[in-house]
């Protein structure tokens, strides 16, 4: 399933990724629309901040680590599940 979810946020993240990695490696960034709403130590603290700022709506949380490669699910891939 392709999704257009977070299109604006992903454009912002891709445009600022290099700066964010250089300045804040290991932190978690909270993005909504084309704006950053802070850097956090853990995904949970970023999530809580997002809930406080925006309520129970979608917002974009990204760990600033080189984990952008595709995740593997071999069991899913071979239809084991």
């Amino acid at each position: 399933m392709e999704t257009n979810l977070f299109e604006e946020e992903r454009v912002y993240y891709d445009a600022n990724k290099e700066r964010l990695f250089n300045e804040s490696w290991g932190k978690v960034v909270l993005i909504k629309g084309d704006k950053e709403y802070g850097l956090y130590d853990t995904p949970e603290s970023a999530y809580n901040a997002g809930i406080q700022l925006f309520g129970n709506v979608p917002f974009f949380i990204q760990e600033l680590m080189e984990l952008d490669m595709a995740a593997n699910y071999p069991a899913h891939l071979v239809n084991f599940v």
């Binding site: 979810l5 979608p58 949380i61 995740a71 593997n72 699910y73 891939l77």
Partner: peptide, 12 residues
């Protein structure tokens, strides 16, 4: 639940 991000996953 509301989404908080996107993951790329490999499949067939």
């Amino acid at each position: 639940l509301n989404s908080v991000g996107i993951a790329n996953i490999k499949h067939v």
